[in-house]
Design a protein around this nucleic acid. Sequence first.
DNA 1: GCGACAG
DNA 2: ATCTTGTCGC
Length: 233
Amino acid sequence: MKSLRTPADEAEACAIQDELRTRVVLDEPGPPPGTGFVTGVDVAYDDERDLVAAAAVVIDAATLAVVEEATAVGRVAFPYVPGLLAFRELPTVVAALESLTTDPGLVVCDGYGQAHPRRFGLASHLGVVTGLAAMGVAKNPFTFTYEQPDHHRGAVSPLLDGTGEEVGRALRTQDGVKPVFVSVGHRVSLDNACAHALRLAPAFRLPESTRAADTLCRRALHEAIGTGFGTTT
DNA sequence: GCGACAG
DNA sequence: ATCTTGTCGC
C-alpha cells in the first residue's frame, strides 16, 4: 500500500496530488463491462462528533447481486475543500476496502477522477493508493461544462474543462433524467467506465453500487453513534 | 479582486 | 455532505 498521509494544509495537499498524479495509469482498458466484480464506495459524516463512516459494497457485475459488504468508522482528518476531497474521504474508505475478503475488482467512487483541477480527483487518488482499477460517478458537473445529452438512456456528451479538453462524460442513465458525470480514475478507459456506469444503473439515475454503499455507510454511521463511538465519557 | 466549486 | 413532511405515482 502506498502513502495516504494527511497533509497539514492545502498547499501540502496539492503538492501530494501533483506527486501522486504521475503514477496514474490511463492506458489500460480495465475490466470488460458486465464481468467480474464492481465495488461501490461512499461515506457519511457527522460533523458534530467529528465522525466519518465509509462503506464498500462488492457487486457481481453481471447480476448486480451483492457479494460482500464492509464498513469502517474514523475521525474526519481533513476539511471539505473542493479539489481536495480525497484527503477527507480516503483514509476511511481504504480501511473499509482492506477489510473485504473479496477482490474489489473495479471501484466506483462518488466524485471524480480525471475531471479535477489538477487531474487527480478522488477516484484517481484511490486507484493509485490501492493499485485497483477505479472510476468516478458524480452527481454534479463541478467546474466543468457540457452540452445536454440526448433525452434517452445511454446518451452521452463530453464533459469539458476550460481548454475544451474532454475530462469525462455526462451520461444519461434514465430517460429524461438529469445525467451523471463519469470520469476515469485509474486503469480503466473512459468508454468502459461509461459502459460500466450504464449497466450499473438499470433502474435509477445512480449506479446500484453507489446506492448500496450510500445506504450502508449511513447505517454504519448511526450504529457508531449509538455505540458511543465519538464519546469521551 | 470576487465568486464558484465533487462530497 | 446534512437538516426534513407529506405527497404523488407505479
